[in-house]
C-alpha cells in the first residue's frame, strides 16, 4: 500500500464521516450546506484515489515523513502550554514556553550556553509583548496564581 493511496483513502473516510455527522441530526433545512460539502469532498477524494491508484502517477508528490524524534518535545510543550495557560496565567506560561522551545531546540553545544542565550531574549521578548498587549492595546489576558 503506498502512502498517496492511503492519503486518498483517508480523505474518503473523512468525508464519509463528515457526511454522516451532517445527516445524523435529521434536520434537512439547517444541515443542507454541510451535507452538500461533504458529498463534494467525497467525490474529490474518490477522484484522488482513482488518479493515485497507479503508483507511477503519484511520483513526485509522495508525502514526506514526520521527524517524530525531533518534534516530540515541541508537542509536549504545546500541550503543557495550553493546559497551564489559564491556571498559571498567560505571561508566566508564555515565558516558560518561550524558554523551553528556544532552549530545547538551541543549536548551542551545551544546555547552559543555550539557556544563557535564551534568558535575555525571553525577557526582552515578553517585555515587548507586555508593552504592546497590556499597555498599548489593553488586552486582558487570564491571570493565574503568579502573574
Amino acid at each position: 500500500m503506498n502512502a498517496t493511496r492511503l492519503t486518498s483513502i483517508g480523505a474518503l473516510v473523512l468525508s464519509l464521516l463528515l457526511y454522516w455527522a451532517a445527516v445524523a441530526p435529521g434536520d434537512p433545512r439547517s444541515y443542507l450546506f454541510p451535507e452538500v460539502i461533504a458529498i463534494a469532498m467525497a467525490i474529490l477524494a474518490a477522484a484522488m484515489l482513482v488518479r493515485n491508484w497507479k503508483p507511477s502517477a503519484a511520483k513526485g508528490n509522495a508525502p514526506s515523513s514526520v521527524p517524530w524524534s525531533r518534534l516530540w518535545p515541541a508537542f509536549v510543550i504545546f500541550v503543557a502550554y495550553l493546559l497551564l495557560a489559564q491556571p498559571l496565567g498567560f505571561y508566566l506560561t508564555s515565558w516558560l514556553a518561550f524558554v523551553a522551545i528556544s532552549t530545547v531546540y538551541s543549536p548551542a553545544e551545551s544546555s547552559i550556553i543555550g539557556a544563557k542565550r535564551c534568558l535575555p531574549a525571553s525577557f526582552v521578548f515578553l517585555g515587548i509583548l507586555y508593552l504592546v498587549f497590556v499597555l498599548l492595546l489593553q488586552v486582558q489576558t487570564p491571570r493565574g496564581v503568579l502573574f
Partner: peptide
Amino acid sequence: RRLQGIGIALLAGLTFF
C-alpha cells in the same frame, strides 16, 4: 541534555514573576 537547562532558566524566572 537541554531539558536540564530549562530547570535553571525556570528558577531564575520564578523569582522574577
